[in-house]
Simulated scan of single mutants.
Amino acid sequence: MTQKKWSQDVTEKSDSLDLEDDVFTRDDPKEIAQSLKRSAEASGRRKSSPYRSAMSMLTFYVNRAGSGLDERQKQVLEDAKDELRIAFGREPKG
């Protein structure tokens, strides 16, 4: 049996968000952002605002999975950050 990395465990069992299955493997940045927004707004366990919780989870995943992501998926996830900002009524950094 292969031992999971702690970062995978955090992503799957975070105290702040219950993530939808395979959210970070999706191809559409807007879909990823909307999923994270739904998860953050529905969570009763998060310790900060829904926006901050969703962005933190996305950034955590990108940083921890970094070298294991292909360039295309890495770009999708980076684009999802701007979509998340838009979803919460904030200006994209783009």
Rank of each mutant, 00 (worst) to 15 (best):
Y61E: 13
D82W: 00
A40S: 13
R64Q: 14
V76G: 04
L77Y: 06
M57K: 10
R26E: 12
D28Y: 04
V62D: 00
F60V: 03
F88N: 05
D27S: 04
L36T: 06
E71L: 09
E71C: 00
Y61M: 11
R46L: 11
E91Q: 14
R46W: 08
G44F: 11
D28P: 00
S49H: 10
S39R: 02
F60G: 05
D27E: 08
G89I: 05
Y61I: 07
Q75W: 01
M57P: 01
G44K: 15
E71F: 04
A40E: 02
K30D: 02
R52K: 15
L69Y: 02
T25H: 04
T59V: 13
L84G: 02
E91W: 10
R52D: 15
P92R: 14
L69V: 01
I86M: 04
A80Y: 01
S35Q: 05
S39D: 11
T59C: 03
S43N: 14
Q75D: 12
E31M: 11
R26G: 03
F60T: 04
I86E: 10
Y51N: 05
E83W: 00
K30M: 00
A80E: 05
S53C: 06
F24G: 04
R90I: 06
G89A: 08
G44M: 11
D70Q: 08
R26M: 13
D70S: 08
T25F: 09
A33D: 12
K47H: 14
F88Y: 15
R90G: 07
K37F: 07
G66V: 03
I86G: 01
P50I: 13
A87P: 00
M57Q: 14
R46P: 13
T25M: 03
K30Y: 00
F24A: 08
G68A: 09
E83K: 10
G44E: 15
V62K: 07
R26Y: 06
K74T: 13
Y51V: 05
E71Q: 10
R72T: 13
P29W: 04
K47S: 15
I86N: 00
L69A: 01
D82Y: 01
R38D: 07
P29N: 07
G66P: 08
R46M: 11
L36A: 08
R45C: 14
E78W: 05
R72Q: 14
Y51T: 05
Q34R: 12
R72G: 09
A42L: 10
A40N: 03
S56W: 09
S39E: 04
L69M: 06
A40D: 04
Y61P: 07
R45N: 15
E71M: 06
D27K: 05
V62R: 10
P92V: 14
A42Y: 06
S39I: 04
S39M: 06
F60R: 04
L84R: 00
A80P: 05
A87E: 06
E41T: 03
F60C: 02
L77A: 07
Y51S: 04
E78K: 07
R26D: 10
F24L: 03
R46G: 11
R52P: 00
S43L: 11
K30L: 01
D79S: 11
V76K: 06
A33V: 12
S48V: 15
K74L: 15
R45E: 15
F60Y: 15
D79I: 05
N63Q: 13
D27C: 00
K37A: 12
